[in-house]
C-alpha cells in the first residue's frame, strides 16, 4: 500500500518534471523566465526546508552558500573552458566544503544561537567579499563566457530541481528522515539512542549547502555579473525563509507552494512600485498569523475538512461531549 503510493508519488514527480521540460514549447519567453526563477526558488526552499523543517536547523546563512556558488561558477568559467554542468557541481561542492569546514563551530550552537551564528557567518562572508581584492571587492566579477539562452537556463534549472528532488526525497522518504526528525525533536535524547547527531546534522547541512551553491551558480550564470551585495545579500536568506514559511515548514511540498506564491507576489507587486514591498510585509504577517503550517498546511487542513466523513445526523448519533 505504502509502496504503491510512493510509486504513484514518484510517477507524479517524474510526470511533472517531464511536463516542465515541455513548458518552453507552450509558454512564451516570459513563462520560461518565471519558470526559471520558480525552479531556483524551489530548489533553495527545499534545501532550507531540509535544514529547518526536517532537521531543526533554522539557518539565516542561506546567502553565504548562494554567493559562494555564484563566485565559483564565474571564477571557473572565466578561468577555463569547463562544461557548465560540471561547473555547477563544482559550485555546489565548494559550498558544501565550506559548510563542512564551518560545521564544527556552528553545530556547537543550539536553537536560537545556531540561527544567530549562521546570520553572523553570512554577514562575515559578505563583508569579507566586499573587502577582498581577489574577488574584485564590491565591484565583483563579470562572466566572460557567452550568455546562455533563456531556454538553456531553464533546462539546467530543471536538471537542478530533478537532482534536488532525488536527493531530498532520499533524505525525507527514507530511514534517514527518522534520524533527521529525531535530532530535530530532541537532539540529546537522539544521541542517547545512538544517533550520531553531529553526522546527521552535517549530512543535512552539506546537502542543503550543495544545493544552495549550485542554485547560486546557476543564478550567476544567468546574471553574467555578480557582486557581493547582490549574491551574498540578506535578501536571499529572507526570501528563502519566507517562501518556506509561507508554503509550509516541514511539509515536503511546502517550498513548492511557497515559491509559487512568493514569485507571483513579487511579480505582481513590482508593477505597483507605489505600494512598494510593504504589501509583502503585510502578507507575511497575515500568513504567519493565520496559517501556521503555511498555505499548503492550510490547504491540506481544508481538504481534510471537506473530505472528512461527517455524520449526516450527528445529533442523533453522538453522545460525545463537545
Amino acid at each position: 500500500m505504502a509502496g504503491a503510493s510512493r510509486f504513484a508519488a514518484a510517477v507524479a514527480i517524474v510526470v511533472v518534471i517531464a511536463g516542465l521540460t515541455l513548458l518552453p514549447q507552450f509558454s512564451g519567453e516570459y513563462g520560461v523566465q518565471i519558470g526559471f526563477r520558480l525552479l531556483i526558488y524551489i530548489v533553495l526552499g527545499e534545501a532550507w526546508n531540509l535544514l529547518a523543517g526536517y532537521c531543526g536547523l533554522v539557518s539565516l546563512g542561506t546567502s553565504s552558500f548562494i554567493g559562494i556558488g555564484a563566485y565559483v561558477l564565474v571564477g571557473v568559467l572565466n578561468a577555463a573552458d569547463v562544461p557548465i554542468s560540471i561547473t555547477l557541481v563544482g559550485s555546489g561542492l565548494v559550498a558544501a566544503i565550506v559548510a563542512f569546514v564551518v560545521s564544527p563551530a556552528l553545530f556547537r550552537l543550539r536553537g536560537l544561537y545556531f540561527t544567530v551564528g549562521t546570520l553572523a557567518l553570512g554577514e562575515a562572508l559578505r563583508l569579507f567579499m566586499i573587502n577582498a581584492s581577489f574577488s574584485g571587492g564590491a565591484g565583483g566579477w563579470f562572466l566572460n563566457a557567452p550568455s546562455p539562452s533563456t531556454n538553456a537556463l531553464f533546462y539546467y534549472a530543471i536538471g537542478l530541481l530533478a537532482a534536488a528532488t532525488i536527493v531530498i526525497s532520499a533524505c525525507t522518504q527514507t530511514r534517514f528522515s527518522i534520524l533527521l526528525r529525531s535530532v530535530r525533536d530532541d537532539e540529546d535524547a537522539a544521541t542517547q539512542m545512538g544517533v550520531r547527531a553531529f553526522h546527521v546534522k552535517l549530512a543535512a547541512f552539506i546537502i542543503a549547502s550543495f544545493l544552495m551553491g549550485a542554485a547560486g551558480g546557476l543564478q550567476a550564470y544567468k546574471l553574467g555579473a555578480i557582486e557581493p551585495y547582490g549574491m551574498f545579500g540578506m535578501q536571499w536568506t529572507i526570501d528563502v525563509l519566507s517562501l518556506v514559511i509561507i508554503g509550509g515548514l516541514g511539509l515536503r511540498l511546502g517550498p513548492v507552494v511557497g515559491a509559487i506564491i512568493v514569485i507571483a507576489l513579487g511579480e505582481y507587486l513590482a508593477d505597483y512600485p507605489e505600494l512598494h514591498i510593504a504589501i509583502t510585509g503585510v502578507i507575511l504577517i497575515v500568513i504567519v498569523r493565520f496559517a501556521p503550517k503555511g498555505i499548503l498546511g492550510l490547504g491540506l487542513q481544508l481538504a481534510r475538512w471537506l473530505t472528512a466523513p461527517r455524520p449526516a445526523s450527528g445529533a442523533l448519533r453522538s453522545g460525545a461531549p463537545r
Binding site: 519566507s242 512598494h276 514591498i277 510593504a278 510585509g281 507575511l284 504577517i285 504567519v288 498569523r289 501556521p292
Partner: peptide, 28 residues
C-alpha cells in the same frame, strides 16, 4: 496586536512577523 496572538507557536512565527514589520516600517 501582532505578537500576542502568536504565543506558543515557536520562535519562527514571531521572527517572521517582525521581519514583516521591518519591511513595512522601512517603507513607511
Amino acid at each position: 496586536f501582532l505578537l500576542t496572538p502568536l504565543r506558543g507557536k515557536g520562535p519562527e512565527a514571531p521572527m517572521m512577523t517582525m521581519f514583516g514589520v521591518s519591511i513595512i516600517m522601512q517603507n513607511l
